[in-house]
Amino acid sequence: MNNRLTIKGGFKHGRSYLKDTFFTPPFRVVDVSEHRHDPTAYVMVMSSSPGMLDGDHYDINIEVETGCSLQLQSQSYQRIFNMERGASQLQQIKLHPGAAFTYVQHPVVPHEKAIFKGRNRIELADDCLLTFGEILTCGRKHSGEVFRYTSFHNITEVYHHAKLLVKDNLLLQPLTVDMAAIGQMEGFTHQATLMHVDTGEGIGADLVPALYTLLEEEKEVALGISSPSKQVLVLRMLGNGGEQLFNALQKVAHHCRHYKTQETHS
């Protein structure tokens, strides 16, 4: 089944807001903004479906207009069920000049024999701020389904004026590759990736060490943070619990937003 979701964030009278949305079942979009003094718009994507089924395709388009600050939230863990053909998702995100977008998604749980192929294409204009995080689990760990899915392939590309800034190509095939091997999960069961991109003044030199300090109390994890260019920061984290990684990415995203605000007013 083809499922569509469109979200557009606008900016007016000094405040960001949900300007327009269109969705087909099982999607639903809710404005969850609470504080009138907060100029950011908070929007939650909800779903009436228990997860992605065989043959499902999600077509998601998100546009953040000039000056808008939009924080998107997912409702719960995303399950990918047993499949023969597979499911797919295309997510296209566009930020206009001076826009900010934050999206740390709940962990993905691929069930036994799940097959998934996804692509995230993110286009940024000048003076944009992007924080985008995703988490992949090993499956239904507490039900004994550890790395029993067939294939998970997800590509994320971030562009600035049609120039590729960073690309993440994640392909896991646990039925054919030993997930405990060197270069794979090496004993961990969950992994998280967060990209933070600033097409304005760029990433500050002190942000990477600040994030290491922020995460130094996390137990039984392995992590690495790199800044391949002045505009891009990438964090990769391995662990054994979805909630732990989700909370850690939320902390990082909050710090990145606060860091930018402090930098602007310093």
Rank of each mutant, 00 (worst) to 15 (best):
L214G: 02
L214H: 14
L214N: 04
L214S: 06
L215C: 11
L215N: 10
L215S: 00
E217S: 15
E218A: 10
K219S: 13
E220Y: 01
E220H: 11
V221Q: 00
V221M: 05
V221D: 05
A222P: 00
A222N: 05
A222L: 10
L223V: 10
L223W: 11
L223M: 14
L223P: 02
L223G: 06
G224H: 07
G224C: 10
G224I: 05
I225D: 06
S226W: 12
S226H: 08
S226F: 06
S226G: 13
S227T: 11
S227K: 07
S227A: 14
S227C: 15
P228V: 06
P228G: 04
P228L: 04
P228T: 02
S229A: 05
S229N: 11
S229Y: 07
S229R: 09
K230N: 11
K230D: 11
Q231M: 13
Q231T: 00
Q231D: 13
Q231S: 14
V232D: 00
L233C: 04
L233F: 04
L233E: 00
L233W: 01
V234G: 09
V234P: 05
V234R: 07
R236N: 12
R236M: 10
R236S: 01
R236P: 09
L238Y: 15
L238V: 09
G239Q: 03
G239N: 00
G239V: 03
G239E: 00
N240W: 14
N240C: 09
G241W: 01
G241V: 07
G241L: 01
G242H: 04
G242Y: 02
G242L: 03
G242S: 10
E243G: 06
E243N: 14
E243D: 15
E243Q: 12
E243L: 12
Q244V: 15
Q244G: 11
Q244K: 07
Q244C: 05
L245H: 04
L245T: 12
F246S: 09
N247V: 01
N247L: 15
A248N: 08
A248K: 07
A248Y: 14
A248T: 01
L249V: 11
L249T: 10
L249A: 10
L249N: 08
L249G: 05
Q250C: 12
Q250A: 12
